[in-house]
Design a protein around this nucleic acid. Structure first.
Lengths: 211, 211
DNA sequence: GACCCATGTTAATATCATTTACACACGAGC
DNA sequence: GCTCGTGTGTAAATGATATTAACATGGGTC
């Protein structure tokens, strides 16, 4: 009962999958023209339905964007969790993988990333969205927790602070330098290395590394 | 020859200051409804001219946005330079002031900040804009240089890398947590403290701080 | 004092978001 | 098998927007 609907081939009066198709269409359009260039009507066209059809599934344009962001946060959390992999083989290496995964997501899924962080969607207006973003952040936080417990008690920073620092650094690098073609600035090194170096320095600053 | 033009009082056929008035109007509108909600027509209305008038001064909507961003980068650079103040009274303290100034700008001038970093304007399409952003970055970079020269030769990191790290961290905190009302997340501490702590840890990680 | 050009205006086109009234179709119940 | 109801689409209408083209104004120049 699920077609694919990319504009080819006829279909009945009912689409069968409009909601999902619209999310995918939004992704493609955002990827192509940025979150601002994305248009409700064009998403409908791409899904092969009339301009009014999307309103049966989303209250308005922002609701569709929020849906994209929600799915984005879910995949983001999953990708981060996979990279962290419970801290194996060892926390430090897993932590590096986590950082790489963060940038990889921003680079390979710029549309999701845009919807999540740049579309200006108020997280607080949507409990599901907020919860999904919390789940993604929780991965980072728990990774920090693991790293912290491996530190001498005297050096342990507040978990939340450390997690926020890591997140801010990752997000900063991702949004300033981490996008494929629309990178805001030329870099002397790939973003991954920049982040890796930052994490090393930061962790050393916490005192968790043998000089 | 410069009025104020806020919709009050008559004016002749010519405005006299349209270009500047439009930039200011754009600022107000962006502040009020985000860069996406800003509309060319509304800016014209606010300036008291017909919807077509702005086209005499800006190629299109994006050009106006770029103008706002340009002015933003200029003020940003000036504000950062003032905060850094040549590294006085001493580099470490001045560096902290620099960080605070970064966040203060994002908080007190969210409209500029949005136009500069979130409106999706391609820096490369506009040499002036690129140059202005370079000037702002140069302040940060030169501050890093000063701090680095004060470090033991053995510990000195690459200037550019350090500047990029600081910028990314500041930008990350500013965009994730640093906006007045639209803050994306509740924080256990003010953004300024979060950034200050991050900078301390980072600098310690570089080895520039006496343990 | 006539003219030019920068700067505004009006009018027109095309596209959007969004709403309302209407159409179809599949499934529940008979 | 038939009928009705609800979930999904469609068509048409409204009001706003971006952008362009043709026309208007008026201050400054020669």
């Amino acid at each position: 009962m699920t077609w694919g609907r990319h504009g080819h081939g006829p279909r009945g009066y009912h689409h069968g999958n409009l909601k999902e198709a619209l999310v995918r269409a939004a992704l493609d359009l955002i990827a192509k023209k940025g979150p601002a260039g994305f248009t409700f009507a064009e998403a409908a066209r791409w899904a092969g339905v009339s301009p009014a059809a999307p309103y049966r599934h989303f209250r308005d344009r922002d609701a569709l964007l929020a849906s994209v962001a929600l799915q984005g946060f879910e995949r983001f959390a999953a990708m981060l969790a996979t990279a962290w992999n419970g801290g194996k083989p060892d926390p430090r290496r897993a932590f590096e993988e986590l950082g790489k995964a963060y940038l990889a997501f921003a680079r390979t899924e710029p549309a999701y990333y845009s919807a999540m962080f740049e579309a200006g969607i108020p997280l607080h207006s949507n409990p599901e969205l907020l919860a999904a973003s919390e789940r993604a952040f929780a991965v980072l936080r728990s990774a920090c927790e693991t790293l912290i417990t491996a530190m001498p008690a005297r050096e342990r920073p507040p978990v939340l602070m450390m997690a926020l620092h890591i997140w801010a650094m990752s997000h900063g690098i991702a949004s300033l330098f981490g996008r494929g073609d629309s990178a805001r600035r030329a870099l002397p090194m790939p973003p991954e290395e920049l982040l890796e170096a930052a994490l090393l320095i930061y962790l050393r600053g916490l005192g968790s590394s043998p000089a």
